[in-house]
Design a protein around this nucleic acid. Structure first.
Lengths: 265, 265
DNA sequence: ACTATTTATTACCCGTGGGTAATATACGGG
DNA sequence: CCCGTATATTACCCACGGGTAATAAATAGT
């Protein structure tokens, strides 16, 4: 079935027996990358710290140099995902355009996140496995995400780009579809994450949008704004907006001083 | 915090110390009712068999008279939920009407299921906690459910009641919204399960429907069928169709002879 | 009433895996 | 070159909870 000799998978900073002198934070992140993948693969309870360590060519106790325990690793995985979502929200909220326009942008970004490991961790991990404190943080953040969807919808209703509807339920419906992506999507399938995201942005808004979605027929019903809403559905353009996907996440990658960092001796 | 003396919760056939002479199957089901509630409340791994037993006024080993082990209990919970879904599908598939009409019916039924314990078990439990064999059964059944959604959509596209679209993605989007209900809904909130279900049936189909949804304007575009599609949105009528929610489930309640029944000595 | 069968209880086992203590090795600075 | 610190390893602990064996209590049949 399985025996030793990991094929030096992905890229572990601990090459079997050579120079293991990388920066601390790089190792920390490597642990998280491995952990989130394993947690998704086997489930939090099915995955063992021994296996996480094994995949990194180290042993379990070494992990405790970087984390207080298993549940903290889980929390940190979730936390990274949350920072990515925050970036999505921040990006979309500063963008100009109607409520519908912002909603669509958020859907695309969020959907694509759900096709990646850290995004999935937001919806596949069980809050009850976290410590009391961390659980509260997560719950608060979840409400923030929900609020973003709801706000854009309400905003759209006001500016006329979205049909009048119950913002709360509409947000649940949309977020549900998107979150579910994290359960079924796996890379290597017929569609790329980006493609799924764009398709969902259309599908999930065409029910509540006042304007026609597909291409023509911008029937002149929108009172204000609605500028660069959507370049009319280019098949596979080289994503024009790779500018800076990481606002807060980039900060974390560089600075990274806050947040517990392993056993405090 | 908590101490002994369970307040004889719900209705346990094992009243603390009196007549415990119920039929075997009734006890079996009582175990499942308690187990599914506890699993949802604390998560499968967080819940212990000791606690399940405690809530039933018995002790852990007694459970092994009815089930082979914890994972079998999990499977049986899931299995009941699956039978309920099968009923939904069976009901809707024999109903007359357009593809859209069937789709809406299925959505309503399925959504309401997601507000109940056994329905939630379909989407909140982790397949990886099941035995190899049972996991295969579940996966097969899941595909069947997905197929039902997809078929109705495809059917609707053909008969003109649904706009042309990718049936697979549309089904994922709809099922995602519905499955997510099982994660956020809890009874006692502002809306009843039924209300949520009806609202979702509208919301999730108005994007892909060719006919106007709300009330008037049946613009004459549907080529065939489309009979008793929907009584125009009665606020809280006493659900006209309580006829027989349980086809297969009813059979199980009465006959119930198949399926492993505890330790075979 | 006596016995066979079912169903429950008490007492126990033990594998698993998170977590820790003691210790060794590598690294960087004076 | 030596020492302090950071980082890793080996060896271990032990709580938890699923599962079992032995046994007792209840039930049904004749």
């Amino acid at each position: 079935m399985d025996d030793g000799q990991i094929p030096s998978s992905s890229q572990s900073p601990w090459l079997p027996f050579e120079s293991r002198r990388r920066a601390r934070d790089e190792k920390r992140e490597a642990v998280l990358r491995t952990a989130v993948a394993l947690f998704l693969e086997q489930g939090y309870h099915g995955a063992t710290l021994n296996e996480v360590a094994r995949r990194l060519n180290i042993t379990k106790p070494a992990l405790y140099n970087y984390f207080r325990g298993k549940d903290e690793i889980l929390y940190e995985c979730w936390s990274i995902g949350n920072e990515l979502v925050d970036d999505c929200i921040a990006e979309t909220s500063v963008s100009t355009g109607s409520g519908l326009s912002k909603l669509r942008k958020l859907i695309v970004r969020y959907a694509e996140l759900m096709t990646e490991d850290y995004g999935k961790s937001l919806v596949r991990f069980d809050l009850r496995d976290l410590s009391e404190d961390n659980r509260k943080i997560v719950q608060t953040a979840k409400r923030r995400i929900d609020r973003a969807f709801r706000d854009y919808i309400a905003q759209g209703v006001e500016d006329g780009s979205v049909k009048p509807c119950d913002a709360k339920l509409a947000a649940f419906a949309i977020a549900g579809s998107l979150n579910w992506i994290g359960h079924w999507f796996q890379p290597g399938g017929e569609m790329t994450g980006r493609a799924v995201a764009e398709e969902f942005a259309i599908r999930l808004t065409e029910g509540i949008a006042t304007t026609a979605t597909r291409k023509t027929a911008q029937k002149a019903a929108v009172p204000a704004a609605e500028k660069a809403d959507k370049p009319p559905r280019n098949g596979n353009a080289p994503r024009e907006d790779e500018s800076e996907h990481h606002t807060r996440a980039a900060a974390r990658a560089a600075g990274q001083s806050k947040r517990a960092r392993g056993r405090l001796r």
